[in-house]
């Protein structure tokens, strides 16, 4: 659905650009290709790394890891697992639903999903390429801490009295 919108917008704008100025359009495409070529090696590496990680960290393994510890240690562990894995949202949300049904606390799931989306240990090579070392590390570190904050808030909001 969103992919269709994305492609529609791209084709539309590309066509518009082409009718306005062919030279500029060609230049834009050249820039796109060059940018793509520059980052392709990192992307390919990450794809394989993700494959390896996901083959080990499947839903069952993740739920075992997250389900084990309770309290703040469990939350911390969930955030770490979320940080090092890279799972597409469409798989991650059902996994989270499964974990909640399996009895994992809301705090842990909050930490897991939040770190999963914001912290990217696996994608760090790509991030370094664009942002440089200082910014990448700072961003990931802050995102990780923020995930813990999110976990706390979600625990308070959803958990009600039990916490």
């Amino acid at each position: 659905m969103t992919n269709i919108a994305l492609y529609l917008a791209t084709v539309l704008l590309l066509g518009l650009s082409y009718t306005r100025d062919r030279g500029k359009t060609r230049k834009a495409l050249k820039k796109a290709l060059k940018a793509f070529k520059n980052i392709l090696p990192q992307f390919l590496g990450i794809i394989v790394l993700v494959g390896l990680l996901m083959a080990v960290f499947d839903a069952a393994f993740i739920s075992r890891l997250i389900g084990q510890e309770s309290g703040w240690l469990g939350v911390l562990l969930s955030a770490v697992v979320g940080a090092v894995t890279l799972i597409p949202g469409i798989v991650a949300f059902p996994t989270a639903a499964m974990l909640i049904q399996g009895g994992a606390g809301y705090m842990k799931i909050g930490a897991f999903v939040s770190a999963l989306m914001m912290v990217g240990v696996v994608t760090l090579p790509v991030e370094l390429e664009y942002f440089g070392r200082r910014l990448s590390i700072a961003r990931n570190l802050l995102a990780f801490l923020f995930s813990l904050l999110v976990a706390y808030i979600i625990g308070k909001v959803c958990g009600g009295l039990w916490f």
Binding site: T10, L13, S17, K27, A28, L29, K31, A32
Partner: peptide, 9 residues
């Protein structure tokens, strides 16, 4: 990347 190229130009 194509959209970014267009934006750049």
């Amino acid at each position: 990347f194509i959209l970014l190229g267009l934006l750049d130009v």
